[in-house]
Design a protein around this nucleic acid. Structure first.
Length: 445
RNA sequence: CGGGGCGUAGCGCAGCCUGGUAGCGCGACGGUUUUGGGUACCGUAGGCCGUAGGUUCGAAUCCUAUCGCCCCGACCA
């Protein structure tokens, strides 16, 4: 993408509405525009990152054998009356009446609807296990939205629902989600720690939240610092292997890590003092096993192998897709701007032309552009005639992890400069070598 | 929902107390200059001062109502 043809309304000054760093940078980098309290338009740069995150979530869901579908944002109130949550949910639920005076709501989650889909189509244990998920906009009418997309009213969320014939299978589904989530967050360049959590309005007693450590986090967290060293990495996990999956979960959940809701002072104090840590975290996902809470209330049953009929065992699992942008920025930035992890960056690399209009530099940039495109790496090429400082500042702000700088001085020696946004380290090399290096970096992402 | 604050140009703000026909910086646009970390100068465009009502000869300014937004707390993915 050529910057001269793109839509990237960056701001030099910080709009007064933004307090925390991710919100400021998202506004300044032209990623979002607020339309009402807690409701945002996603401008092209922000939309690209949102789509990247969505793609990673989809890919990891597919790897775990989960099946995508799409449920509507608007739901009939009657469905929620069946589970009793129409009254329980309170003011946070946005209620709407249509022209026929039918009561509707903008869905804050989808347990009722998925249970309805299940009960009208699944009768036998032979159709289980089943995991259905979607990535859809939700609405929770927060009293006080804040922190930009981290606590919006409208938000994009992946929510998945598992259906199993018995408790053991359901717990495997729970574990499978934990492992797939760990992999999902790692691909986004995040360390998200599973912490034992309280269940809230979804219900159920087996639940973990995934927290990204950041000083601006909304939750106080207590953990053994050894937990931050755990990495799933490239290890091969067979998601159907109950034992293997359970083992990974055990590895990640044995060390102490809890939110303030479930914190136990005695257990915490048993950790060696130098590994005891109290910090803040941003919740980026949560998994629940809640058994038959909804299936019983809504009559979602299956016939088992012995011919009896039982309510299906369920769990639900969520990833805050839009909120992840904020969480990633909180965890990865400096005083110049955002530093995108390679996995989610809107563009893999930026090209800065230091002397726009100079025949040789223009040609070198064009050649670089074409070579990167040929590798499937779409660069953002700053072909404006701003001066160097302005271009660098803009690139730093929007946070592309790699930048190739092309100027007459280096070109005279056949060199361009490849710079890491994260370390600031620059290396001179031939354009061909730069393309090869960038391709190599992204080969593993 | 309790407490506090703010709505004036795309963004950041001044003007309001003490009414007299709206200003600064950045940005945008046009030029000249410059060109390896937000360059300098000259010029141009852009605002029913959130909205409605009231007081007044006259309202961005005073009064009332209303809408919106932000911050602290409570709550929450």
């Amino acid at each position: 993408m050529r910057l001269s043809r793109y839509f990237l309304p960056v701001l030099k000054e910080t709009p007064s509405e933004a307090q925390i760093v991710s919100h400021r940078y998202m506004l300044r980098a032209g990623m979002i525009k607020q339309q009402a309290a807690g409701i945002y338009s996603w401008l092209p740069l922000g939309y690209r990152v949102l789509k990247r995150i969505e793609t990673i979530v989809h890919e990891e869901q597919a790897r775990a054998g989960h099946i995508p579908l799409l449920m509507p944002t608007l739901q009939p109130a009657d469905l929620w009356r069946e589970s009793g949550r129409y009254d329980d949910y309170g003011e946070e639920m946005l209620r709407i009446t249509d022209r026929h005076k039918r009561e509707m709501l903008y869905g804050p989650t989808n347990e009722e609807m998925i249970t309805d889909i299940f009960r009208s189509n699944v009768e036998s244990y032979k159709q289980l296990p089943l995991t259905l998920y979607h990535i859809q906009w939700k609405f929770r009418d927060e009293v006080r939205p804040r922190f930009g997309v981290m606590r919006g009213r409208e938000f994009l969320m992946k929510d998945g629902y598992t259906f199993d014939v018995d408790r053991d299978s359901a717990l495997h589904a729970y574990n499978r989600h934990m492992v797939s989530y760990l992999r999902t967050y790692e691909r986004m360049g995040l360390t998200a720690i599973p912490m034992r959590a309280a269940s809230g309005p979804i219900g159920g007693d087996n639940t973990h939240e995934f927290l990204v450590l950041a000083s601006t986090g909304e939750s106080e967290v207590f953990f053994d610092t050894a937990v931050t060293d755990l990495k799933l990495g490239q290890r091969d996990v067979n998601y159907d292997d109950r034992e293997q999956v359970a083992k990974v979960c055990e590895e990640f959940t044995t060390l102490y890590a809890r939110t303030d809701e479930t914190h136990d002072e005695a257990l915490f104090n048993a950790i060696p003092e130098e590994r005891r840590k109290v910090a803040r975290g941003i919740e980026v996902g949560q998994i629940f096993y809640f058994g038959t809470k909804y299936s019983e209330a809504m009559g979602a049953t299956v016939v088992t192998a012995d011919g009896s009929r039982v309510p299906v065992e369920m769990g639900s699992h969520g990833i805050g897709v839009s909120r992840l942008l904020g969480a990633i920025i909180e965890a990865s930035h400096d005083d110049k701007g955002i530093i995108w992890p390679e996995g989610v960056t809107p563009f893999p690399v930026g090209i800065v032309n230091l002397k726009q209009g100079d025949g040789a530099t223009d040609a070198a940039c064009d050649a670089l552009y074409a070579a990167l495109m040929a590798q499937g790496l779409e660069p953002l090429y700053d072909d404006s005639d701003d001066r160097a400082g302005a271009k660098f500042a803009k690139m730093d702000l929007i946070g592309l992890p790699w930048r190739i700088t092309v100027g007459p001085r280096g070109l005279a020696a056949g060199k361009v400069e490849l710079t890491s946004r994260r370390t600031g380290i620059s290396e001179e090399m031939s354009p061909e070598a730069a393309v090869a290096r960038v391709a190599e970096i992204y080969a593993g992402v």
